Simulated scan of single mutants.
Amino acid sequence: MTKNTEILCIGSVLWDVIGRSASHMRQGSDVPGRITRLPGGVAMNIAMTLVRFGMKPTLLTAIGRDPEGDELVHSCAMLGMVTEHIYRSDDLPTDRYMAVEGANGLIAAIADAHSLEAAGAKILRPLVQGPLGSEGAPYDGPIALDGNLTMGLLEEIAQSPAFARADLRVAPASPGKAERLLPFLQHGRATLYVNLEEAGLLCQREFGDSESAAQALMDRGALRVLVTDGGNSATEANAEGVLNRMPPPVLVTRVTGAGDTFMAAHIAAESRGAEREEALTRALHAAATYVSGETPL
Rank of each mutant, 00 (worst) to 15 (best):
K56V: 15
A214Q: 05
V42G: 07
E179G: 01
A108G: 03
T295H: 07
L38P: 01
V252P: 07
P32H: 06
K122M: 07
A237Q: 09
E156H: 10
M1T: 10
E294I: 01
Y87R: 06
M81P: 11
G102D: 13
D260Q: 04
Y290I: 00
A214D: 11
G102H: 04
G188D: 14
D91G: 00
H114W: 04
R37V: 04
R272M: 09
I86H: 09
D146T: 05
A258G: 13
E135Y: 09
G33Y: 04
A279Q: 09
F262S: 15
T61M: 02
L60F: 07
S160A: 15
C76K: 00
G133S: 07
Q186T: 05
M25D: 01
G40E: 08
F207D: 04
N4Y: 13
V194P: 02
E198K: 02
S115T: 05
V31P: 01
T36V: 15
L14R: 00
S271M: 14
E277K: 04
A268F: 04
E211M: 09
L14A: 14
A264M: 12
G102M: 08
C9M: 00
R220S: 05
H285V: 12
A239G: 06
R245A: 13
D146Y: 03
S23T: 05
F163M: 08
T150V: 04
K3S: 13
K122C: 08
D112G: 02
A279M: 07
P248T: 05
G231F: 09
S12I: 02
G293M: 01
L149R: 07
Q204I: 01
S233L: 11
A190I: 04
G293R: 05
N238A: 14
V82G: 12
V170F: 15
N45H: 12
G152R: 08
V227G: 03
G105S: 01
V194D: 00
T58H: 00
F184E: 10
S21F: 05
M44A: 14
L192W: 07
A99P: 05
G133E: 07
D91K: 04
E278L: 06
G133F: 06
R276P: 14
A119T: 01
A237D: 02
V255S: 14
H266N: 14
